[in-house]
Amino acid sequence: MRIIILNFLYIFFTISLVYAQENLKVNNIEAKELYEELRCLVCQNQSLLDSDAPLALDLKKLVLYKLEQGLSKEEIKEFLVERYGEFILLKPTFTIKNILLWVAPFIFVLFGFFLTFLFLRKTPVSKEEVFTLTEAEKEKLKKVLNKDIIE
């Protein structure tokens, strides 16, 4: 009985694994890379690889077809950007137009360092100086203390 159950479980799990593999299988490595770099325009924060939207399937088919025709990855991306705009690229291009997008994080970090520097500089570092009273001050203190005690 135990063996039958184990066998059943074994078959059950291997089948589902095979199925999952089948679903993910993309023969063409270049195509897979492209799918990952392209945005599904229907579910807009998914890549083509993740998306099963009909348009994504069509675009995947198109990418595969273009690769088979011998177009390079860059050419295919260009083809799609010409039609859908740069939004279809999940990773924005490094151009003058996008420079702020790329550089802003570094600007913020530098700004943070600058602020830290300012803050640290303006806060006096407590030096362990010993302040002693002058003779005149000692006299004055004595007087005040004595007066208080008398009163």
């Binding site: 009909p54 348009l55 069509d58 039609r83 859908y84």
Partner: peptide, 10 residues
């Protein structure tokens, strides 16, 4: 649906 890709249809 292959032709309208040229129009950027989504």
């Amino acid at each position: 649906g292959t032709q309208v890709i040229n129009l950027g249809l989504y």
